[in-house]
C-alpha cells in the first residue's frame, strides 16, 4: 500500500501520537504486558501484531486509560495517560474487540447517546447520528435493535461511534476479527480513509495480512514483549534471505533447471507441483548472475523470474520461534496474496 502516503508522513512534522516506555501490567502471576515500548508517529497506521493472548489488548487498554499500568509510562500527544487521563480521553477513540455499543438500543439511539455525552446538542446529536449512519452505510438498519445486526454492521457502528468527536488518535482492537473477507476489505478501506483525513490509527491484529496491508510500521508482540519493530519491509528483510522463483518455458526443462540452480546457488530448491515453479533461497545475490548465464548456456528458456521477500508469516515464525498454529488458514491467504 501507500508508498505516497508514507512519503507524506515523512514530510510532516515528527509529532508522536503515542509514546510508551516500559509498560507493564500483571494479572496475578501472569505478566500480560511485560515492558512494552511503542512510538507511533502522528498520521500513520501502526499495527500491533501478535497471536491471541500476546498482550495486545491489555497494552491498548492501558494507552486508552481503561487500565492503569503497573509500571512504565505512556503519553498520547504528549499527555500522560495516568496523570492527565481526562485530556487523553478527549484525544482518542476506542473501538474494542467486542463491540462497545449498546446491544439493547438501536444504532441511532447509540450514536445519539454517545454524541450527547460528547457535548453535542439535541439537534446536533441527531444530525451527527444521521451523517455517521450514512457514511458507514447503516441508514437502513438505523432503527433496528442491534441484536439483529450482523458482525460487520456492529463493527461499523462501533467504529462510527468512535468517530463522533473526530479524535486525532483511534485505537482499533482487532477491527476485523470474525468478519468475512468482503466486510473486512470494507473495514480496511474505512481505516485508510481515516488516516487520509489526518487521524492516527493504532490497530491490533492477529492477521499478518492485515498488518501487511494497512500498517506503516508494525510492532510484533509476543508474550507481553515487543520482539520486533519496524516497517513491513524492514521486518521482512530482518528475516534474511529473499527467495528466487522461476518458471521454465518447457516443462521438460524443469528437472535440469533445478539441478543447475542447486549446483550454482549451492542451495536446496523446491518445485511446486501445481505450476512447476521452482523456488530457492538466495544466500548470495551475486551468484544469481552466474545462474542465469548457466541456464542460458544449458539452453533453458525462462517464462518467469522473480525475487520475493519473505512473508510476514515467516517473519513471525522466525522472531518468536513458534508458529501461528491457530492461524494456518490465514497464513495461506497471505501467501496467495504475496504470489
Amino acid at each position: 500500500m501507500g508508498y505516497e502516503h508514507r512519503k507524506k508522513i515523512k514530510a510532516e512534522d515528527t509529532n508522536w501520537a503515542v509514546e510508551a516506555h516500559g509498560l507493564v501490567k500483571t494479572f496475578g502471576d501472569n505478566r500480560a504486558v511485560d515492558g512494552v515500548n511503542l512510538n507511533v508517529r502522528a498520521g500513520s497506521i501502526y499495527g500491533v501484531l501478535g497471536p491471541n493472548g500476546a498482550g495486545k489488548t491489555t497494552a491498548i487498554r492501558m494507552l486508552a486509560t481503561l487500565l492503569r499500568p503497573d509500571a512504565g509510562s505512556a503519553q498520547i500527544f504528549g499527555h500522560d495517560v495516568v496523570k492527565e487521563p481526562q485530556i487523553v480521553r478527549q484525544l482518542i477513540g476506542v473501538t474494542g474487540q467486542y463491540a462497545s455499543v449498546d446491544e439493547s438500543l438501536s444504532a441511532t439511539e447509540n450514536l445519539i447517546i454517545f454524541s450527547r455525552l460528547l457535548g453535542l446538542g439535541r439537534a446536533e446529536a441527531r444530525q451527527k447520528a444521521r451523517e455517521l449512519l450514512e457514511e458507514f452505510g447503516l441508514t437502513e438498519a438505523a432503527k433496528r435493535p442491534l441484536k439483529h445486526f450482523s458482525g460487520g454492521m456492529r463493527r461499523r457502528l462501533d467504529l462510527a461511534a468512535s468517530l463522533i468527536a473526530r479524535p486525532p488518535l483511534i485505537f482499533l482492537d482487532e477491527p476485523t476479527t470474525g468478519l468475512d473477507p468482503r466486510t473486512r476489505n470494507q473495514m480496511w478501506d474505512t481505516i485508510r480513509q481515516l488516516v487520509k483525513q489526518g487521524s492516527t490509527v493504532l490497530l491490533t491484529t492477529q492477521y499478518l495480512q492485515e498488518a501487511d496491508e494497512l500498517a506503516d510500521r508494525i510492532a510484533v508482540i509476543d508474550r507481553g514483549r515487543v520482539v520486533a519493530e519496524g516497517t513491513v519491509d524492514e521486518l521482512k528483510t530482518s528475516v534474511g534471505s529473499s527467495s528466487l522463483h522461476l518458471r521454465t518455458q518447457h516443462p521438460q526443462d524443469i528437472e535440469e533447471a533445478r539441478q543447475t540452480i542447486e549446483r550454482v546457488l549451492k542451495v536446496e530448491s523446491n518445485v511446486s507441483s501445481i505450476d512447476g515453479k521452482i523456488s530457492a533461497p538466495i544466500t548470495d545475490a551475486d551468484r544469481v548472475t552466474d545462474l542465469l548465464i548457466s541456464l542460458r548456456e544449458a539452453n533453458i528458456h525462462l517464462a518467469e523470474l522473480s525475487v520475493q521477500k519473505p512473508t510476514l508469516d515467516e517473519v513471525f515464525l522466525n522472531l518468536t520461534g513458534h508458529g501461528l498454529e491457530n492461524h494456518s488458514k490465514q497464513s495461506g491467504e497471505v501467501e496467495e496474496a504475496a504470489v
Binding site: N15, Q86, Q90, P167, P168
Partner: peptide, 30 residues
C-alpha cells in the same frame, strides 16, 4: 479537513459540575 490535536478542540483537564450533571442526565436517558 485535517484533524490535528492542537487545533482540534479545547482540552479540559477536569469535568465541570454542569458537565457532570449533563452527562448523568444523558446516561439516565439511556
Amino acid at each position: 479537513p485535517s484533524i490535528h490535536p492542537t487545533t482540534h478542540h479545547q482540552l479540559n483537564k477536569r469535568t465541570s459540575f454542569t458537565q457532570s450533571v449533563r452527562n448523568s442526565l444523558t446516561m439516565a436517558y439511556r
